[in-house]
Design a protein around this nucleic acid. Structure first.
Lengths: 241, 241
DNA sequence: AAGTGGTCTAGACCACATG
DNA sequence: ATGTGGTCTAGACCACTTG
């Protein structure tokens, strides 16, 4: 149960890790007010500065929000990094000042046939919901989303109506996640993709494939296909902060 | 001279900022041993813990390396984040277990003709060195690099021989930088690009355009073109650490 | 052996939001 | 007004590396 992920040697590291585990496990959900520094210091039998060191670090990492007087709260996993904002296509479109709309093209549930799966979809998937949807900006096709959701990891997903809400949007708000892996590449649009995006067959497309993981399991896989000449991905880096 | 970038309210923030400025300005170059905690505490007239808080933070940010007994050193800006490793194509190729080689295709110096410049090249460029080079993996074209270096920002670059060393590699080790901005998109290879990469005209390519900045000026602009079906960009994200 | 950073304490005062 | 986090102190002991 309490797995020895690895034993931190210092007390503030142990506190940090235990708080972090409560957050990513969902025991302390977004918006939850965690115990006060003084209380945690008492519980751990240490000084308040030691607790403060752990919580300050988690705040910088974006897991907590702290307010004087009102306390320390678990932050919604919304805004992570600029590069991660590709998570929510609605934001992407609206930030560009365009009108966002969305169409669900296909929606099936069932067991995975491992043979026909894309090579990069996690092999752990068995019972899944598969969706195809189109995101539009000012009425023009903006992004084709092919998504596979692991129903075992997210049982609630079986009942959700995705005709008006995009699955990516719903998942981002519902499911705590640990890690995301992206692969970005270019490819020529095949006939089917080209039709859906209203582009020529063979036109260059930017493709992002993403696997999102829980601490327990692979949660979802998504392929986002953008018409290559209409879309650019932005990312900024700086050595610190 | 001492610009009020913005006045930090707390002492450890002020210390952090002043150390950071010394590093990114180059006053404390990579490998430099910075003053000991005890000395800085004396100089700032504060306790050692306050200095420690600033330096610990800079260490986590990757600007410093700390060793017991031997002291605290400015870290080489080499490894930043997984997403940033696209900076050094040689690493990229060698990490894939392939043999790296490099060809300089074109090399000119002179004044910029603003009219003919790509739209995204910084407008501040005047006297520049322009290079075109090809990176190969196991003898196969891997990436086409078009680069413009601002000679005003990096005077030394005028004399460097880039027939054996790639400009990106040299710049990464020589020039301290503040921020990098990437744009990633897909496009169809034009005739010229296709010839250099040994692919069909019109084939989908992954293109990364990057502007790298100093605190003083735009340093360099680069366009990296990868054959789309042969290359994938990897990026990992996690909420913390 | 000596000197560095790593950690921790048991207080303290302050700023800020509202409990 | 009260209680929270933000910051800071003046010590202390320990771990690690080599100066």
């Amino acid at each position: 149960m309490t797995e020895p992920t690895d034993m931190p040697r210092s007390l503030h590291q142990r506190i940090l890790q235990e708080v972090q585990e409560k957050i990513i496990s969902g025991a302390w959900p977004p918006g939850y007010r965690i115990p006060f520094e003084t209380d945690m210091a008492r519980d751990y039998g240490c000084s308040r500065m030691t607790v403060n060191k752990a919580l300050t670090q988690l705040t910088r990492a974006g897991l907590l929000v702290r307010n004087r007087k009102s306390g320390t709260f678990v932050k919604a996993p919304q805004s992570l990094s600029a590069a991660m904002e590709i998570s929510d296509i609605r934001h992407e479109v609206e930030r560009a000042g365009k009108a966002y709309s969305y169409h669900l093209l296909n929606d099936t549930s069932g067991n995975v046939d491992v043979e026909t799966l894309e090579p990069l979809v996690p092999r752990s998937f068995q019972h899944v919901r598969q969706l195809t949807c189109l995101h539009l900006a000012d009425g023009q096709p903006f992004c084709l989303e092919q998504r596979i959701i692991n129903i075992e990891a997210v049982p609630d997903v079986a009942k959700v109506d995705f005709t008006t809400e995009a699955p990516g949007h719903w998942l981002l708000q519902q499911v705590p996640w640990n890690a995301a892996e992206h692969q970005i590449f270019a490819c020529a649009a095949n006939r089917e993709t080209a039709d859906m995006l209203h582009i020529e067959t063979g036109a260059a497309c930017l493709v992002i494939e993403r696997t999102t993981r829980n601490q327990d399991a692979d949660v979802t896989w998504a392929r986002l296909t953008y018409p290559g000449d209409r879309h650019r991905l932005f990312a900024s880096f700086s050595p610190s902060e």
